[in-house]
């Protein structure tokens, strides 16, 4: 059930290579950090690992096979800005249930209140919205979660709440996590190992 990147390289159009020959292997239940200066391609790498982008060189494999191109994707990504990741014309319950139906227990662990479900996205704060984005990504078939600056925009208490919930769920399900953050202290707290890009 490993997620593997084999010698991948990427560039936008005819621009310079963002990265080449990147290798990465993550085991289930492992928490791996990706660090590197801004503009180095951390987000692009995450997008490739979750099939939002196709690498120009190399390949990504899940369980030694190519990533599936239909059905539920085993690698789910949570982005930095939740307000850009939800449909502003949908109410929260539709957003939450788009991919699957999260159970009460998950909502409780993540601190999502029933009363929020009938609101529009603009009526929730960034921290509240991000909880929905996390819940949405934690379907029963998610094997790897990519947290790309997931709590960067949130205050310390909300950050600790969300990470505590995610780590608990990951441990229970043997789910692997990739953490992208610039906060060295957070990286230290969460990750088993860190890869420099």
């Amino acid at each position: 059930m490993q997620l593997k990147a084999n010698d991948i390289g990427f560039r936008y159009e005819n621009g310079p290579w963002l990265f080449r020959g990147v290798n990465l292997c993550i085991e289930p239940g492992e928490v791996v950090g990706i660090a590197g200066p801004s503009g180095r391609g951390k987000t692009t790498l995450c997008r490739i690992l979750s099939s939002y982008e196709t690498p120009l060189e190399g390949s990504v494999t899940f369980n030694d096979a190519p990533l599936p191109d239909k059905g539920y994707h085993p690698v789910q990504m949570v982005l930095q800005h939740p307000e850009k990741a939800v449909n502003s014309r949908w109410k929260m319950h539709s957003i939450l249930n788009e991919g699957y139906h999260p159970d009460e227990e998950l909502l409780e662990i993540l601190g999502i209140e029933q009363e929020w479900l009938t609101r529009w996205p603009h009526e929730l704060s960034g921290g509240e919205l991000q909880r929905f984005c996390v819940a949405r990504a934690l379907g029963p078939n998610t094997r790897f979660l990519i947290a790309d600056e997931m709590t960067t925009m949130l205050d310390a208490i909300t950050q600790a709440q969300i990470w505590q919930a995610v780590m608990e769920i990951a441990q229970k399900r043997e789910m692997g996590i990739i953490v992208v953050t610039h906060e060295a202290k957070l990286m230290q707290r969460l990750c088993d190992r860190v890869i420099e890009l």
Partner: peptide, 16 residues
């Protein structure tokens, strides 16, 4: 807020 920082206890209080 101070206690919830990753370099301190990383322990949140409940609620929002």
């Amino acid at each position: 807020l101070w206690r919830a920082l990753p370099q301190n206890d990383f322990v949140p209080i409940t609620g929002s």
